[in-house]
Amino acid sequence: MSTLTKKRVAILISGRGSNMSALLAAAADPDYPAEIVGVVSDKADAAGLGIAAARGVPAQAIARADHASKDAHDAAIDAALTKLDAEIVALAGYMRLLTAPFVEKWQGRMINIHPALLPSLKGLDTHRRALEAGMRVHGCTVHFVTPEMDDGPIIAQAAVPVMLGDDEDALAARVLKAEHRLYPKALRLVAEGKVRMQGGRAVFSGLAEDPAGEASSLFSPGALRDAVDLEALARFTP
């Protein structure tokens, strides 16, 4: 039996929660350093709530419409996280901007995954914008959350190619596969204390430096290998 002390993680979602599912799957491993103790959605009809509940994880909706102000809504979410004794908060497709007091309370303990290689393409519609810009490389980023949108210190990134003939759906699907690999790796680093937010930067310590070790997961080339057709990639590469 594992004697690992696991960090208590709560996940915030707004929809289907596919990255939530990836974190739940990772946390099912007895050796994973985090346990998912609850899921909270700002939308009562979020599909991810049912998925979490089916896996035995407490899930609840705290709808914005049920609260008089944005501050009151965030206070209700904070109360739910406190009741869960959450130590880390993971945003997984949470589509509402959080208030500065909420972010400041959880700063250094709250992370997010964004479907682009930050600091490029902050905000919404990242796949469409990548295609419109003619970008040849796209990807995803896990970062600490700060009051400014998509602006916190970067923990890890995964890059995928933009293939000739890609449409928005094809590119989004490729990036999503990379997200599902990257987010559990990044959460592991945070839960183990191998990355922390300090002085507005992500500070790393104790990472294995070998080619297959933890340091390589900060870029996560494995996410690229699993996310693309390697023969097609070879044709793409000059």
Rank of each mutant, 00 (worst) to 15 (best):
T141H: 10
C140I: 06
V160N: 02
A158P: 02
D150F: 14
M149V: 15
H143D: 07
E148D: 15
A156G: 04
I155K: 11
A158T: 07
V142R: 00
M135T: 02
Q157A: 02
I154K: 06
A156R: 03
F144S: 07
A156C: 05
H143R: 03
Q157F: 03
P153C: 03
H138F: 13
M135E: 08
H138M: 06
R136G: 02
V162S: 04
V162W: 09
V137C: 00
G152K: 10
A156V: 04
E148G: 01
V162G: 05
L164T: 15
V142L: 10
V145E: 13
T146S: 11
Q157D: 05
H143K: 08
P153V: 07
D151P: 01
Q157C: 06
T141F: 09
E148Q: 13
T141V: 05
M163Q: 11
M163E: 09
V145A: 14
G165H: 14
A159I: 02
T141N: 06
C140V: 06
V162H: 09
A156E: 03
G165M: 14
M149A: 12
V162D: 06
A159G: 07
H138C: 00
P153W: 05
D151H: 15
E148S: 09
V137E: 10
R136V: 11
V145Q: 08
M149S: 04
G152W: 10
C140L: 01
A156W: 01
T141S: 15
P161W: 13
R136C: 05
V137L: 14
F144Q: 08
V145D: 12
P147M: 12
M135K: 01
V142Y: 05
R136T: 14
G165T: 13
P153L: 07
V142K: 03
G139Q: 00
A156H: 02
D151A: 15
M163D: 07
L164W: 11
T141A: 08
L164H: 15
M149T: 11
P147G: 10
V160Y: 01
G152C: 07
L164Q: 15
Q157K: 05
I155R: 01
M149P: 00
H143V: 05
V137F: 10
H138Q: 00
D150H: 13
H143M: 04
P147N: 12
F144R: 02
V145P: 13
T146K: 13
I154D: 03
V160S: 01
D151E: 14
Q157G: 03
D150C: 08
T141C: 08
H143F: 10
I154F: 05
I155S: 07
I154C: 06
D150Q: 08
V137W: 05
V162Q: 03
T141L: 04
P161E: 12
F144K: 00
E148I: 04
A158N: 02
D150A: 08
I155M: 08
M149L: 15
L164A: 15
G139N: 03
F144P: 07
A159F: 05
C140H: 03
M163C: 12
P147K: 13
D150R: 03
M135G: 02
V142A: 08
